[in-house]
Design a protein around this nucleic acid. Structure first.
Lengths: 99, 99
DNA sequence: ACGCGGATTCGACATCCGTCGAGTTTGACA
DNA sequence: TGTCAAACTCGACGGATGTCGAATCCGCGT
């Protein structure tokens, strides 16, 4: 029950994603992105929701991007972030009791 | 779709658990504990599965314990670890697409 | 061409984190 | 009581991480 066996290389890979979610700001960013109306959200809507500087938000978004959890697309002056469900589903399955 | 909204205090709490899984050794420990025969596993069976020292394993197990992901019980000379499914299920649900 | 606002990158800094070896605790058993 | 093995704690060290402000990049509109 719960959590399938994971070998060392797999643990190495997946831990990057978990680590990315292991910061309060990033977890909240992820939740805002994943629950966004229309499947995406503008950075300009993310930044004002936090107390930290916009450069810090950018830095966190980069971490989520490099972890494979989100995708970014520039349109005009704005950048929109979108969730990447594949990896999220993989993490979810790993933690689910029936796995 | 995917990931319910999370407010700041909740993010603060849950990020501790994700951070705990955000290390390769701890993720593998978690997987071994959660998939253990009989629902528990001895530290003496965990330690030799890794290249790091036993004090490091102890340190990681403490992190998992303090994150609420596992429980420990001493019996005679040995300490047995058991998963705490409640929190794991919460994390899994948070990442599942239907949430 | 210029300036502007949104977003990222860069450089710096303080703090946190993973690791080790040494020392300590715990319980079993002679 | 003394010793042994299992597990944890402690102190220290180097590298990673979160944060900021300044500088830079990128499109747009004038």
């Amino acid at each position: 029950m719960a959590v399938q066996r994971v070998d060392a290389p797999t643990a190495m890979n997946l831990s990057v994603a978990f680590k990315a979610l292991g910061d309060p700001v990033r977890l909240q960013l992820m939740s805002m992105i994943a629950s966004a109306e229309g499947g995406e959200i503008c950075v300009c809507d993310l930044t004002p929701a936090f107390e930290v500087s916009s450069s810090t938000i950018s830095h966190h978004l980069k971490t989520l991007r490099e972890a494979g959890l989100v995708d970014a697309e520039r349109r005009a002056s704005w950048v929109y972030y979108r969730p990447r469900p594949a990896l999220m589903r993989q993490l979810s399955t790993l933690l689910s009791p029936d796995a």
